[in-house]
Write a protein that binds this DNA or RNA. Structure first.
Lengths: 127, 127
DNA sequence: TTCTCCGGTATCATTGAGTATACCAAATTT
DNA sequence: AAATTTGGTATACTCAATGATACCGGAGAA
């Protein structure tokens, strides 16, 4: 019985440790204000610099430029340059980029229901 | 046809705008390195200061203290003080705190599969 | 009585994320 | 011809988040 419980708790502890590390890894990769909105924008089909910039409230050209370079190095986006094409520079999402889909979905869900939560609170307190 | 397409694109654009805002709200609330690991730790049943601190690699007492105060103000944790009890100070999760569950789950999933991805890459290149 | 543990706080230093602003060359529009 | 748009870059700066370190009173153990 003792042995069983000990093993159980040791396993639980190891699991928790692994999960915290995984969580911290993800936070590290997605760190900052802009990576997730940019990933979201590109996965939504925005391909041009200005298009992406206009789809993200508050981002400056400098930050977008920096993050895009960074993300290109880390295989999160593919940048294509073809000066003869109608649209000379294209940003496209990679499979790796798409792997953040579930996280983004959950964060959007939370944000929307949080807004509703706030709105309900307000109407309740005013009435 | 033109009208239909225009309406469609306007609706899509509004949807995307709402989603970006929701995403940015969530990022704002969860900003920083520590909020999510702390929420995770408390939701996992850790109740004491040292317990929480030991469950999160790299966090200092100062940061934990600051974040816990902040989170108490924002109704993310409940702090109970009872000097006569066996365990005098307790941190507990609130319903609001638990609403981040899906996000945390997805981030843990991503982190774990990312680790596996890296490991597979390594074994492939060495062989 | 001294030592250690618990639950923190105070102070100072650092640093990098983000901002503001100006600028650029090429293409397109007016 | 002049103005605007696109896809950025360079420089300088700010400031809030984080880290390092030392310290604190109370409780219990050695």
């Amino acid at each position: 019985m003792f042995l069983y419980l000990s093993i159980k708790y040791i396993l639980m502890a190891r699991n928790q440790q692994e999960e915290v590390r995984a969580l911290q890894d993800t936070i590290y990769v997605l760190g900052g204000k802009w990576k997730l909105p940019i990933i979201n924008s590109i996965c939504n089909g925005n391909t041009r610099f200005k298009e992406i910039q206009q789809s993200i409230p508050g981002i400056t050209a400098r930050m977008l430029s920096k993050e895009l370079k960074d993300m290109e190095l880390n295989n999160l986006v593919k940048r294509t340059e073809d000066r003869d094409a109608v649209i000379p520079i294209l940003y496209e999402s990679t499979d790796y980029c798409k792997s953040f889909g579930p996280i983004i979905t959950e964060m959007i869900n939370w944000g929307i229901s949080h807004r509703e939560h706030i709105r309900n609170k307000k109407t309740n307190t005013t009435v």
